[in-house]
């Protein structure tokens, strides 16, 4: 179904375990700001596989109680200041991970199996701090310790994509990790740059990059919906806006001023 971005935000309950994409995948920044306008709280974030500006803003606004991630950063614009501050103050719980484990936990859910085995990790402090990961002996070839990571079922996946069609299918192109997010979530809330006629499944060229509407609960059209982050070949990251954020968010007060100004400037 189609609605506005605030309709989409109203569908995401407080306390939800939500899946969010990396900065290169299509980050739903406009939806994130709509969530903050409705004063969302107690979110638990699951990053596929890393967190971006979106995560830093949600943490800075006090909307997050827990995050599972392999990293949070502003990429070439530096550290994620609100994330670092919250960890140093002990105000959020972090389940530190590594990129392929973030993928594997959702892959297990996609396939309807309870866990995935994973190489690496043995002897790391990540493993030492993850009570939900297990080391077992390879049952098919004993004498080969291997880590099992559990299937994670997300309550909601949220992301931004270039296109939707009239039937509610979403075109994600090569960004297949968005399909993984959607497959592993009870439901997905998606913003798109625009909606086109027909169905992506009429042509092989568009079918290959499509995500079926069966995973998608609701769509809102939001041009520039990833701004100030970029979106594939549609638009690049807004460097000036990112630098302004990185500078403002160095202090909690600076972040608050940035957030108030940004929320006031966003048409509801």
């Amino acid at each position: 179904m189609q609605g506005g971005v605030d309709d989409l935000a109203a569908r995401l309950p407080n306390g939800a375990l939500i899946g969010v994409p990396a900065d290169y995948s299509g980050v739903p920044m406009a939806l994130t700001l709509a969530l903050l306008r409705r004063k969302v709280r107690d979110l638990r974030l699951f990053c596929l596989p890393t967190g971006s500006l979106q995560v830093d803003v949600l943490i800075g606004a006090g909307a997050v109680v827990q995050i599972e991630t392999s990293a949070v950063s502003l990429g070439e614009f530096g550290l994620a200041p609100c994330f670092s501050r919250a960890v140093e103050a002990g105000t959020i719980k972090v389940k530190d991970s590594t990129c392929p484990a973030m993928h594997a936990q959702l892959t297990a859910t996609e396939r309807g199996i309870p866990f995935m085995p994973m190489r690496g990790l043995l002897g790391s402090d990540l493993l030492a701090h993850r009570a939900d990961w297990r080391v077992v002996d390879n049952p098919l070839q004993p004498g080969d310790p291997i880590v099992l990571v559990p299937a994670t079922r997300l309550d909601v996946a949220i992301f931004h994509a270039p296109l939707a069609d009239q039937e509610g299918n979403v075109w994600i192109g090569r960004r297949r990790e968005l399909a993984t997010l959607a497959h592993a979530a009870e439901r997905s809330l998606v913003t798109v740059e625009r909606v086109v006629g027909g169905s992506f499944f009429e042509r092989e060229e568009t079918a290959a990059g499509a995500l079926s509407s069966l995973y998608v609960e609701a769509i809102a059209t939001v041009p520039q919906g990833a701004w100030p982050l970029g979106l594939g070949d549609r638009y690049p990251v807004d460097g000036a806006a990112m630098r302004a954020y990185a500078k403002a968010a160095r202090t909690a007060a600076g972040f608050r001023t940035w957030l108030d100004g940004t929320l006031a400037g966003v048409p509801a």
Partner: peptide, 27 residues
């Protein structure tokens, strides 16, 4: 170490995190 300095989890200075290192460094 890509996570931070100090005593985990309440670090003195937090950095982004491990990214893919806890896997790629092995394989």
């Amino acid at each position: 170490n890509l996570v931070g300095t100090g005593t985990y989890p309440r670090l003195d200075k937090r950095f982004p995190g491990c990214f893919g290192a806890a896997y790629l460094a092995y394989v």
